[in-house]
Design a protein around this nucleic acid. Structure first.
Lengths: 138, 138
DNA sequence: ACCACCTGTAACTATTCTAATTACAAGGAT
DNA sequence: ATCCTTGTAATTAGAATAGTTACAGGTGGT
């Protein structure tokens, strides 16, 4: 299972986007997410390194670097999940076995295609969509 | 990252399918995968419980319960990864916050759609395709 | 300048997952 | 009977996750 950082990061981004005029300290974000402020600051750091937000050391508040409709869930996903591949493959299969010899290449292709499908879907949903669902729905 | 059980299970299924006339003991499969036989037997157990293979206690060899073209990678994935959801979501977000209140539903939808895209791709590739890539390619 | 509040980050911990391993009960084949 | 096998429990080491404490240093109001 993929860690909760992705979920927490989206929650955090939605909170920042929904209150552009408030300077939310990490304690407030943590209170909404229900976790420790340090967990939030770690995630804010990753979002910042990915170029999605701006923060200032010592000063409360983060802001988006671009409009919510230009930030996809894939952007957030990659920001907090820098590991390239979703599927692990076992090491050193026996190359003297025809199956062992070729399995890495075949699995890399199949898993790559599956991951690409997932990422493609994540890239089609934006932070703006999230905000819309949170605030404009029934 | 998703565990190596999926990769090992596909490797194992390919091995079984590629040698329908041999009764492979778990030691032989383990030698091809490069792991411990018990790891293989555990995975064979999951594949059996999922109805993908037949095995007999005490007797070497496993066989597919249906043709390789009727076994998708999604079947294998579900067999060894029974956990329903791919993405974890944090517990107990603050319901007194508008974002915290609705985030679970929104994330469940977004993550569900992404997972569905991945599963759809996995369901479109069969064990037969794997065998083809292993044996009929350049 | 002081002070309250904040960020950024290191360090430590508990928990969980994974994979490897040992051990063994019980089935199958000759 | 004996040997090889499966199925499974129990234990272990290692990695990842998330929570926590602690603190160095920035920010801004007074």
């Amino acid at each position: 299972m993929i860690n909760t950082r992705v979920a927490v990061a989206i929650h955090t981004m939605a909170l920042i986007a929904s209150r552009p005029n408030d300077d939310l300290p990490s304690d407030d974000i943590a209170a909404s997410v229900n976790t420790n402020p340090v967990v939030i600051r770690r995630i804010l750091g990753m979002l910042k390194r990915a170029g999605l937000i701006r923060t200032t050391a010592g000063k409360a508040g983060a802001s988006l670097t671009r409009d919510p409709e230009k930030i996809s869930l894939l952007d957030v996903f990659h920001a907090v999940e820098p590991n390239g591949s979703l599927f692990a493959v076992h090491d050193n299969p026996n190359v003297h076995c025809p199956v062992g010899k070729g399995i890495r290449t075949v699995l890399d292709e199949a898993f790559g295609a599956a991951q690409h499908a997932l990422e493609n879907k994540l890239s089609s949903e934006t932070l703006q969509d999230i905000l819309h669902h949170l605030f404009d729905d029934a």
